[in-house]
């Protein structure tokens, strides 16, 4: 995903705003797809962690030795934190696509 334009970019930065409806649709589709992918990863992590906590089998938290459960649980928390950071990055379409506030204001005037 190429950045369209960042608010910190100078005046000389190339303007990569979508120029046609088809380009706009492609941009929106790409942003939406990235967010959904990040959200799916978070759902998978949350479901897997909750299932692991339930006493469903020999690898569940209740059955593992405490040290192993500590390692797996800690790893899960770390993985969750990474996924949440990933999700936060992709759940802000403006930051993914670059700010267009200046152009919007100009267009509205």
């Amino acid at each position: 995903m190429q950045r369209i334009r960042s608010s910190s970019d100078g005046q000389g930065a190339p303007d990569r705003r979508p120029q046609t409806p088809a380009e706009l649709a492609a941009l929106v589709r790409e942003l939406s797809r990235r967010e959904r992918r990040a959200r799916l990863l978070l759902w998978i992590w949350a479901t897997a962690t909750l299932l692991w906590l339930m006493p469903l089998g020999p690898l569940s938290a209740a059955q593992l030795p405490v040290a192993a459960a500590f390692a797996v649980g800690g790893g899960s928390l770390v993985a969750g934190a990474v996924l949440i950071l990933l999700y936060r990055k992709y759940s802000h379409p403006r930051s993914s696509a670059g700010s267009t506030r200046r152009q919007e204001k100009a267009a509205r005037r």
Binding site: R17, P18, V28, L31, S32, T100, A106, A107
Partner: peptide
Amino acid sequence: GELLELAEALAVAQ
């Protein structure tokens, strides 16, 4: 909501 705002703004800019 944000995505919609962005798409609307870009459509108006176009």
